[in-house]
């Protein structure tokens, strides 16, 4: 039984434009899958639809079934808010692209991490403080100082680590990472990717990694879905996609990634 099963998902705007068309894929527990495509290809909308959080005015059809251990199997589309609240944070949760906007600017970091712990694990007082400390300690050094800081007082990399700590706090069965490294500079990107991979592997979580960057996706996932103009154009193991892409768009993606790489190598040889 797969953890996430998306069948024939279509997402439309109010004026009838189809942003995601007949998308089907599934994801098993503990599996790491990349969702790749250019901006505007419907990647982020798909992740929001999985959480049952499509922006107002958008409608989705098809089927999205979340079946996490210990939680009722749920058809997300059309589900009641109450049911979805139970799933969010535990069955699945999201790490967003820009941690500065994904964290409340007026709430101390510690409080923001405490929020899901309070709700899901029902921790209070000293136990809650300790849990926040532990959650932060897993992703960065000096958790006490970070917990007291406001988001604008820490660096971009630290903010993304905090966002990851928030997402991991309730041990979700599926972690959706929506371009989690795009807003960061390259050296920090690598650290964040490593942090994500180790945490996901240690906890046996499933990972849906959304990105436009093939190199980044191939570093952390086993299987790749290629999305273009809201349609699934190719699907396969990372090896297969990188070495023998069949669709023209995938070939283009691989080609440009290789060009970048060979440019680097040429510079290195000089």
């Amino acid at each position: 039984m797969s953890l996430l099963d998306v069948q024939g998902l279509s997402i439309r705007t109010e004026d009838g434009r189809e942003l995601v068309a007949d998308l089907s894929f599934s994801l098993d527990a503990g599996e790491r899958v990349g969702l790749i495509g250019e901006s505007g290809s419907g990647k982020s909308l798909t992740t929001l639809a999985v959480m049952g959080l499509l922006p107002p005015g958008m409608t989705a059809s098809g089927s999205i079934v979340l079946d996490a251990p210990g939680l009722p199997r749920t058809e997300v589309l059309g589900a009641r808010e109450r049911r979805l609240l139970e799933l969010r944070g535990r069955a699945a949760t999201v790490v967003f692209q820009e941690p500065l906007t994904a964290l409340d600017p007026l709430m101390r970091v510690g409080q923001q991490v405490a929020e899901p712990l309070r709700r899901v694990k029902r921790l209070r007082g000293a136990a809650l403080r300790q849990a926040v400390r532990d959650a932060l300690a897993q992703v960065l050094p000096d958790p006490d100082r970070i917990a007291r800081a406001f988001p604008h007082e820490i660096s971009g990399g630290q903010r993304q680590r905090v966002a990851i700590a928030m997402a991991l706090a309730c041990d979700p069965a599926l972690l959706i990472a929506d371009e989690p490294t795009t807003a960061l500079d390259v050296t920090v990107q690598e650290e964040i990717l490593e942090l994500l991979s180790t945490q996901v592997a240690e906890r046996g979580m499933a990972l849906l990694f959304v990105s436009h960057d093939l190199a980044v996706v191939s570093a952390v996932t086993e299987r790749v879905l290629v999305l273009r103009h809201g349609q699934l154009v190719e699907e396969g193991g990372v090896e297969q996609i990188v070495h023998s892409p069949t669709h023209a768009y995938t070939r283009e993606l691989v080609g440009s990634a290789r060009q970048l790489e060979s440019a680097l190598e040429r510079t290195a040889k000089r």
Binding site: F96, A163, A167
Partner: peptide
């Protein structure tokens, strides 16, 4: 704001 969406993805009512 995105932090509202982020709060909702972690199940805040």
């Amino acid at each position: 704001q995105e932090y509202i969406t982020a709060a909702r993805t972690s199940g805040t009512g």
